[in-house]
């Protein structure tokens, strides 16, 4: 067997693997409408509907946190996050949830918050007010 043949074969296999893996594991950020339509596990990015109720009562169930998310198309859905309420949730600018639609609610078990970063503060602290 020639080295070149092996290289060619491996490149082909990897190329195919890459292609399939990307097409299966990758998705675009979905809207609620798309999530309702395809009923698959997707990521939805949106902003917190601050005027709607956020519910977390650890005494009752520490793994249940619900809030309303507004997707880029303006659709608002109730999201049930199977986790505790993240510490910096109230301040988040953008929220990405991973999960799927169940009825009229989006059930998620993963959340990524984009907050005014911990790594940059644009404030200048002053010793006293002038």
């Amino acid at each position: 067997m020639n080295k070149l043949h092996i290289i060619a074969a491996l490149v082909l296999i990897t190329g195919m693997a890459l292609f399939f893996s990307l097409s299966r594991d990758v998705s675009t950020y979905a809207t609620f409408a798309e999530a309702t339509e395809n009923q698959h596990r997707v990521k939805v990015a949106g902003t917190l509907a601050k005027d709607k109720e956020m519910y977390y009562n650890p005494a009752e169930n520490p793994n249940y946190f619900s809030f309303y998310l507004r997707d880029p198309k303006g659709a608002e859905k109730k999201v049930i996050l199977l986790q505790g309420k993240p510490q910096d949730f109230d301040r988040s600018e953008q929220i990405v949830v991973t999960g799927e639609m169940k009825g009229d609610e989006f059930v998620a078990n993963e959340v990524l918050l984009k907050c005014p970063s911990k790594y940059k503060d644009e404030e200048i602290y002053m010793k006293k007010q002038i």
Binding site: D25, R41, V42
Partner: peptide, 16 residues
């Protein structure tokens, strides 16, 4: 374009 993203990066990488 909305941008695509790996839904579950950990299981994706582990798989390969």
């Amino acid at each position: 374009y909305l941008g695509s993203v790996i839904v579950d990066p950990i299981s994706h990488h582990n798989k390969f």
